[in-house]
Computed example of a mutant assay.
Amino acid sequence: MVVEIFGIKACDTMKKARAFLEAQGIDYVFHDYKVEGVTADRLSAWAAAVGWETLLNTSGTTFRKLSEADRQDLTEAKAIALMVAHPSLIKRPVLTRRAEILVGFKPETYSRLIG
């Protein structure tokens, strides 16, 4: 079972999710958006599975710092372009296993997916 986790290394929620996986003895591959970036194709696939609204972090400082024009009239295409340009806009973490995708970290949800 290959578990991949996507996010930003310094993020506190990422640290909790990675610590949880390690405590459960789950091997995973970590992808750091700040180092590796993220493609529009990958974001489109995730959006098809969970919805672009779920992926876009509108409560963080990165979103608030965007121009008014960027924050208004969001569509899937516009949101994906913004997330490619500003990976901090992607909610963290995104965990994938086979075709399953989880956005955000909740220990009970992780336990069901990997248990």
Score class of each variant (00 low, 15 high):
Tyr28Val: 14
Leu21Gln: 06
Val29Trp: 00
Ala48Met: 06
Trp52Asn: 03
Glu36Gly: 03
Ala23Trp: 02
Arg42Leu: 07
Leu55Phe: 02
Arg42His: 01
Ala49Tyr: 00
Arg42Asp: 02
Trp46Phe: 13
Tyr33Gln: 05
Ser44Trp: 03
Thr54Tyr: 02
Trp52Thr: 06
Trp52Val: 08
Glu36Ile: 01
Asp32Pro: 04
Gly25Thr: 14
Leu43Val: 06
Val38Tyr: 01
Glu36Trp: 01
Val29Leu: 09
Ala19Val: 09
Thr54Arg: 13
Tyr33Asn: 00
Phe20Leu: 10
Trp52Met: 03
Glu36Ser: 12
Ile26Val: 15
Arg42Ser: 04
Glu53Thr: 15
Val38Asn: 00
Ala40His: 05
Ser44Cys: 08
Gly37Met: 11
Ile26Ser: 04
Lys34Tyr: 11
Asp27Ala: 15
Trp46Tyr: 14
Ala19Gly: 13
Leu55Gln: 04
Val29Ile: 10
Val38Pro: 01
Leu55Met: 10
Gly37Tyr: 11
Lys34Phe: 05
Ile26Arg: 04
Glu53His: 15
Asp32Cys: 08
Thr39Tyr: 07
Gln24Asn: 15
Gly51Cys: 12
Asp32Gln: 11
Ala49Gly: 05
His31Pro: 01
Phe20Met: 03
Ala40Met: 00
Thr54Phe: 03
Arg42Thr: 13
Tyr33His: 08
Gln24Pro: 05
Thr54Glu: 12
Thr39Arg: 08
Leu21Glu: 02
Asp41Glu: 12
Lys34Asn: 10
Asp32Thr: 13
Glu36Met: 01
Thr54Asp: 09
Leu43Arg: 02
Lys34Met: 14
Glu22Asn: 12
Ala49Val: 12
Ala19Glu: 14
Asp27Val: 13
Asp32Met: 03
Gln24Ser: 13
Asp41Thr: 11
Asp32Tyr: 07
Arg18Met: 14
Trp52His: 05
Arg18Gly: 05
Val38Met: 08
Asp32Leu: 04
Trp46Val: 03
Ala47Trp: 01
Leu21Ile: 08
Lys34Leu: 13
Asp41Asn: 14
Gln24Trp: 13
Arg18His: 08
Ser44Pro: 00
Val38His: 00
Val50Glu: 00
Arg18Ile: 03
Arg18Gln: 09
Ala45Leu: 11
Tyr28Met: 11
Val35Trp: 09
Leu55Ile: 05
Phe30Ala: 06
Ser44Leu: 11
Ala45Pro: 02
Ala47Arg: 02
Trp52Gly: 01
Trp46His: 02
